[in-house]
Amino acid sequence: MTQNDTTTERVAIVTGGSRGIGRETATRLGRDGYAVVINYAGNQAEAEEAVKEVEQAGGRAIAIRADVADETAVASLFDQTEEAFGGVDVIVHAAGIMPLAPLVDLDLAVFDSVVRTNLRGTFVVDQQAARRLRNGGSIINISSSLTKLARPNYSAYAATKGGVEAITLILARELRGRDITVNAVAPGPTATALFFEGKPQELIDRIAAEPPLERLGQPEDISEIVAFLAGPARWINGQVIYANGGSAA
């Protein structure tokens, strides 16, 4: 299938699609007429609510549970998507975790869990996507502007997102001749549960005031960029798009 083929429904898998940026992205793709698979790690109720939101937006949707770092589970996720909708055109890899602590204090078991979910998860999901996306497809990884902003307490998270960007840039070149684009979107501070968790209001207000636009990003700010990369943006490839309202690196 090519981007100009309007007779075949486009199909997207959104990992981490039950909440935050992933959920808003799934709904945005539903408005564009996609069939969307909501991948989730554990909260089935949230995933089913996300399915309803996609359907209300005009798309078809199902929810499938899978650990993004488990290659067998991710292969099954793609199998089930192909069985339900006939193929896969777009993967939006938004699943991730973000425990915060100074490097000197971070428990190595926590560090290993961040690496497993954020970095290994990206590698596993992108590997299946590279093998199975149809022509005209798009792989969109969610990175973070923290790779540039270098904010204290984010060393583990930012390190994994730096790896996500490296995977993205290299995979785009490895897929030469496949008509598949590979890009990353690197949000700045965005008003999601993942961002708000554990932060005092004073810190939230201070971070929100940093960009010239003087506000936090909203999930819909990011979903619009993802939808552009998933659909019409065929000449954007092998790029990291920093979506942070102008926060200085």
Rank of each mutant, 00 (worst) to 15 (best):
Gly163Asn: 07
Ala12Phe: 01
Glu202Cys: 03
Phe78Arg: 05
Val54Ile: 07
Ala12Thr: 03
Asn244Thr: 07
Ala61His: 02
Val240Gly: 04
Trp235Arg: 14
Ile21Leu: 15
Thr2Val: 08
Pro99Thr: 12
Gln201Ala: 13
Glu9Cys: 14
Asp126Gln: 15
Pro102Ser: 12
Pro200Tyr: 08
Ala172Met: 11
Ala208Ser: 13
Ser144Arg: 04
Arg31Gln: 15
Gln201Phe: 01
Glu48Pro: 05
Gly136Leu: 02
Pro189Phe: 01
Thr147Gln: 07
Gly136Cys: 05
Glu165Asn: 13
Glu53Val: 03
Glu224Lys: 14
Thr7His: 09
Tyr34His: 10
Ser18Gln: 06
Arg134Leu: 12
Leu169Met: 13
Leu119Tyr: 01
Ala156Met: 08
Asp79Ala: 14
Glu210Tyr: 00
Pro212Ile: 09
Ser76Asp: 14
Tyr40Thr: 02
Arg206Glu: 13
Leu194Ser: 12
Arg31Trp: 06
Gly17Val: 03
Asp126Ser: 15
Val36Trp: 04
Glu210Cys: 00
Arg215Asp: 04
Ile236Pro: 08
Val37Leu: 04
Glu224Trp: 04
Arg178Lys: 15
Glu202Asp: 15
Leu213Phe: 07
Ala129Phe: 02
Ala248Phe: 10
Ala130Gln: 11
Arg116Glu: 15
Glu53Cys: 06
Gly137Phe: 00
Asp179His: 13
Ile140Thr: 10
Glu82Cys: 10
Gly86Val: 08
Ala66Gln: 02
Gly231Arg: 14
Thr122Leu: 07
Val164Gln: 11
Asn4Phe: 12
Gly137Lys: 00
Leu100Gln: 15
Ala12Asp: 01
Ala101Tyr: 02
Ala84Thr: 11
Ala249Cys: 02
Ser18Cys: 06
Gly177Val: 06
Asp5Cys: 04
Phe123Glu: 06
Thr81Met: 02
Glu83Ser: 13
Leu203Asp: 08
Ala57Phe: 06
Gly177Ala: 08
Met98Lys: 10
Ser113Tyr: 02
Gln239Leu: 05
Lys52Pro: 00
Asp105Thr: 12
Ile140Asp: 04
Thr192Tyr: 00
Gly58Val: 12
Glu224Gly: 12
Tyr157Thr: 05
Tyr242Phe: 14
Thr147Asp: 05
Gly162Ile: 13
Ile38Arg: 03
Arg131Met: 10
Arg60Asp: 13
Asn141Trp: 02
Ala227Asn: 13
Ser138Phe: 03
Ala63His: 08
Asp5Gln: 10
Asp126Arg: 01
Leu169Arg: 15
Val124Ala: 04
Phe78Ala: 06
Ala159Glu: 04
Ala249Gly: 14
Ile204Met: 09
Asn4Gly: 15
Gly188Thr: 04
Gly137Met: 00
Asp67Lys: 12
Gly163Pro: 04
Thr2Phe: 10
Glu49Gln: 14
Thr147Met: 09
Gly59Cys: 11
His93Pro: 00
Arg10Tyr: 08
Ser76Lys: 14
Pro200Phe: 04
Phe85His: 05
Pro187Gln: 07
Glu48Val: 09
Ile13Leu: 03
Thr25Cys: 06
Arg178Gly: 09
Glu174Arg: 14
Leu216Ile: 02
Ala47Pro: 11
Ala84Gln: 13
Ala95Trp: 01
Ala50Ser: 15
Gly22Ser: 12
